[in-house]
Amino acid sequence: MSNREISCSTALREALEEEMERDDTIFIIGEDLVAHGGIFGQFEGLPERFPGRVIDSPISETCIVGSGVGAALTGMRPIVDMHFADFVTTGMDEIANQMAKIRYMFGGQAKVPMVLWAPDGGGLSAAAQHSQSLESWFVHIPGLKVVAPSEPSDVKGLIKAAIRDDDPVIFFQHKRLFAQTGHVPEDEYIIPIGSAAVKRPGKDITILTYSRMTYLCLEAAEQLAKEEIDVEIVDLRTLKPLDFALIAESVKKTYNVLIVHEACLTGGFGGEIAARIGEELFDYLDAPVMRIGAKDVPIPFSPVMEDFVLPKVSDVVEGVKKVLNR
């Protein structure tokens, strides 16, 4: 087995190339794809490799998402590129009322095998309309699967699973993690949608997190280890369907839970997980479940303010100590 390390961007591109090679019903549509290779260069090389299957759209999110829905209904496997996750607002009817509901409201006679790829998250001084983490909107809509991986190997394994899935998948990929490198196996593999992973085993407290926050939590865990606090980190990877079995397994071992996400705290996905742990695992808790999320303001532009608003390693360290009363 090789030890090759590649970035999240490369992992995505590799996966798309392998999948498009395997299945010619797959195509990608979005803005700035053919000449530019995607606004982040995420699809570089694919337009040349697969002529006609990487398609430039006018600036029309409603038609980008809608074209995915209509093509999926008629035998294709589209990947639609949202440019920035924030722009889902301009294609929201197509996501919430069409993509999510068509199979159900037509009594199961159709399927919508499409992936909506949405680069999200803050930390780039991109300000309020290019920095959001909006995943909780989509877990709230029945009919969608929601994925938010952290490391490159998860990106590759999960995008493949998302493409092959017969249901619509919202695939959030954090912009600050594009350059993040990690080991990615050379051989073909799939990571099933709906499976979380323990990214650091520990016995004192469970941190439930996903996307970029996984890396922050890993850093916090190293600091806490010096104070003899042994943190277990569960990277949820998929938010819907949620791998509650793995969450329960970890909680039954540590009796303490901290949930960390980059999305703002109020109405964030952490509240849902906390409630469920309260309902189903109350007897296994030594302390109330706590949550860390961004402060409840839009993401500000100036780096000093953005840093203040987004969760930091020190917030996670303090949060763990608060749960453990240390």
Partner: peptide, 16 residues
């Protein structure tokens, strides 16, 4: 609501 969906069907026809 039908317009964007038909764009997808049209694209699908073209690709197939």
């Amino acid at each position: 609501g039908g317009f964007p969906i038909m764009i997808g069907a049209g694209l699908s026809i073209k690709l197939r």
